[in-house]
Simulated assay, not measured.
Amino acid sequence: MSDESPRRASRIILLDERDRILLMNGFEPDDPATTWWFTPGGGLEAGETWEEAARRELAEETGITEVELGPVLWRRTCSFPFDGRRWDQEECYYLARTGQRPVWTGGGTELERRSVTGLRWWTCEELLATHETVYPTKLAGLLRTLLDEGPPRTPVLLETERA
């Protein structure tokens, strides 16, 4: 993969038995007051499939290994500044369900240890009502549609987000 190629990242829409979604709380390492919530997941390693990355990242970030990984719900591209550089990323969002309780592991990387504070289950109503920053930015509406209508027949291509 060349330097110009976007990073490929698997993300997980992890729901518990009460249809709450698990999100991680992160911040800009150089500005801890700039915070946001985001789904578990991360970059594919060499030779890894999207699904393998989703399972590995979930285990590394939450300790959850007992998961029913479902279909790919959404795909998107995004570009954002973080930790002194611009990240261009292609993302694939998997639906997953678990009854296992998460544990903030501190993350698998040094950067995660410097920029993530923990985990929280959110109801759809809480997401719809929050004024906190959540990525992807339309996650509350996407989750509402998912819970009301079920997974799409084929992955939905989300709008490109650029921060």
Score class of each variant (00 low, 15 high):
Glu4Val: 14
Pro6Leu: 11
Arg8Thr: 09
Ile12Arg: 00
Asp16Leu: 12
Glu17Lys: 10
Arg20Met: 02
Ile21Asn: 00
Leu22Lys: 03
Met24Ala: 10
Gly26Tyr: 14
Glu28Gly: 11
Glu28Met: 11
Asp30Met: 15
Ala33Gly: 13
Thr35Arg: 15
Trp37Arg: 02
Pro40Gly: 06
Pro40His: 02
Pro40Glu: 08
Gly42His: 10
Gly43Phe: 04
Gly43Trp: 05
Leu44Ala: 02
Leu44Lys: 13
Leu44Ser: 10
Glu51Trp: 05
Glu52Ser: 04
Ala54Ser: 02
Glu57Asp: 08
Ala59Ser: 10
Glu66Asn: 07
Glu66His: 09
Glu68His: 12
Pro71Thr: 05
Val72Met: 06
Val72Lys: 00
Arg75Met: 04
Thr77Pro: 02
Thr77Leu: 08
Ser79Leu: 00
Ser79Met: 06
Ser79Tyr: 01
Pro81Val: 07
Arg86Lys: 12
Trp87Tyr: 14
Asp88Trp: 08
Glu90Ala: 05
Glu91Ile: 00
Cys92Lys: 08
Tyr94Met: 03
Arg97Gln: 03
Arg97Leu: 06
Arg101Asp: 15
Arg101Val: 09
Gly106Asn: 06
Gly106Tyr: 03
Gly106Trp: 11
Thr109Cys: 09
Thr109Leu: 11
Glu112Arg: 02
Thr117Asn: 07
Thr117Pro: 01
Gly118Val: 06
Gly118Leu: 00
Arg120Tyr: 10
Thr123Ser: 11
Thr123Arg: 02
Cys124Gly: 13
Glu125Ala: 12
Leu127Gln: 01
Val134Lys: 03
Tyr135Trp: 11
Leu147Glu: 10
Pro151Glu: 09
Thr154Ile: 13
Thr154Trp: 12
Val156Ala: 01
Leu158Glu: 07
Thr160Asp: 06
